[in-house]
Design a protein around this nucleic acid. Structure first.
Length: 298
DNA sequence: TGCCAGGCCAAAT
DNA sequence: ATTTGGCATGGC
C-alpha cells in the first residue's frame, strides 16, 4: 500500500469532527475525485490533515473540506472557490482517454485516478517552486511553512498564515529568508519578489499570453528555469500541456526512450509521447514513481 | 559518513 | 549549442 493510500502523513488523527463548524456549509457530489491524492501529489506543500478533514489555503481563503465517497463536504470556503481550486471542471474522461497505452502509464492512471491538477494562485505557486530546487517535498513544506508563519498575514479563525505578498518579501533582506532554511534560494526568491513588486513581472497580465511566451516571461525571473516555469504554467496557469521535467520524470522518460538524453530532449520526447494533456500524465507518472519507486520496465 | 533532493546559472567546451 | 561545477540545507 502506498503512502498516499495510507494517508495521515501530516498530524494523523482518527475520525475527528470539524471543531469550529459542526455541519458542512455545502455538500457537493464529486464522483471520480480524490481529495487526498490531489493534496498529496506534490503540487502544494502547506496543506494540513486532521483526521478526515483537510485544510488548505488558497491565497487568504481557508478551504476546510472532507470527502466521504462521492460527497465533498465544504466547511469553509465557497463552493465556487473550492470547485475552481480543485479544478472540478476538468474534462477527466477526455484526459484519461488521452493517456498513453503502455503498461506503466496505465498503472499510474490506475493508482492516481481522481487526482486533479490544481488552480493555484500564481504568486504563491511561483514563489514556492522557486524554493523547491534540489529539495525534497518534505523540506519544501518546511520552508513554505516557515515563510508563511514569519511573514504572512494570519488568517482569522485559524492557525494559518497566507503566503506573504510580493511587497512583504521584497521588503526583507536576504538573511531573513535564509533563516527560513532557503540557502542559496533566498536570493532568487527575493529577486523575484522585487521584480513583481516593481511591476516588471505582472503575473496576472501574463495570463493572456500563449504558453511559450508566458514561459519565456517566467524564465526571466531569478531562480526560474524551464522546470520551475513549467510547474507554474501547469499548477497556476492551467496550461495542461506543460511538462516539468524533474529527476523523477527524467528517469521515467529516459527508461521509456531508452537512451541518454538532455532534459530538453526528454521534454520534447514527453510532449510527443504524453499527448494533449501531457501535464496530467506527467503528474500521475511523478506520483506513481515517487510512491512506488518503480520505473518503466521494472 | 556519503548521497540525494520536483534546479538554476555562469563558465567552459 | 551543449555540458559541467558550484551553490545551501536537511533527511536517510
Amino acid at each position: 500500500m502506498s503512502k498516499a493510500q495510507r494517508g495521515g502523513r501530516v498530524s494523523p488523527g482518527r475520525g475527528s469532527e470539524p471543531k469550529s463548524s459542526d455541519k458542512p456549509k455545502v455538500l457537493r457530489k464529486v464522483p471520480g475525485f480524490s481529495l487526498q491524492l490531489t493534496l498529496e501529489s506534490g503540487q502544494v506543500f502547506h496543506m494540513e490533515q486532521d483526521g478526515e478533514i483537510w485544510k488548505i489555503l488558497c491565497g487568504s481563503d481557508l478551504l476546510t473540506i472532507r470527502q466521504i465517497g462521492d460527497d465533498l463536504e465544504i466547511f469553509s470556503g465557497s463552493e465556487a472557490g473550492v470547485g475552481c481550486y480543485f479544478a472540478l471542471d476538468h474534462p477527466m474522461s477526455s484526459i484519461y482517454a488521452s493517456f498513453p497505452a503502455d503498461a506503466y502509464s496505465q498503472a499510474a492512471l490506475s493508482q492516481c485516478r481522481g487526482m486533479r491538477i490544481l488552480r493555484q494562485p500564481a504568486w504563491e505557486c511561483l514563489a514556492t517552486f522557486i524554493t523547491s530546487s534540489m529539495k525534497q517535498v518534505a523540506h519544501i513544506r518546511q520552508m513554505s511553512l516557515a515563510i508563511r508563519s514569519r511573514f504572512g498575514n494570519p488568517v482569522m479563525g485559524s492557525a494559518f498564515h497566507a503566503y506573504p505578498e510580493p511587497a512583504r518579501l521584497a521588503s526583507l533582506d536576504e538573511m531573513a529568508l535564509r533563516e527560513c532554511g532557503l540557502g542559496f534560494r533566498a536570493k532568487n526568491l527575493l529577486g523575484t519578489a522585487r521584480a513583481v513588486e516593481a511591476g516588471d513581472a505582472d503575473l496576472e497580465a501574463w495570463r493572456a499570453l500563449p504558453t511559450d511566451e508566458l514561459r519565456e516571461k517566467l524564465c526571466t525571473l531569478p531562480g526560474v528555469g524551464r522546470k520551475v516555469a513549467n510547474c507554474v504554467l501547469l499548477f497556476a496557469y492551467g496550461r495542461l500541456e506543460a511538462i516539468p521535467v524533474d529527476v523523477w520524470i527524467a528517469r521515467i522518460a529516459t527508461a521509456m526512450r531508452k537512451r541518454k538524453s538532455s532534459p530538453r530532449q526528454l521534454e520534447e520526447f514527453s510532449i510527443r509521447r504524453f499527448g494533449p494533456y501531457a501535464g496530467y500524465v506527467q503528474q500521475y507518472l511523478f506520483h506513481h514513481a515517487r510512491t512506488t519507486g518503480k520505473l518503466p520496465g521494472q
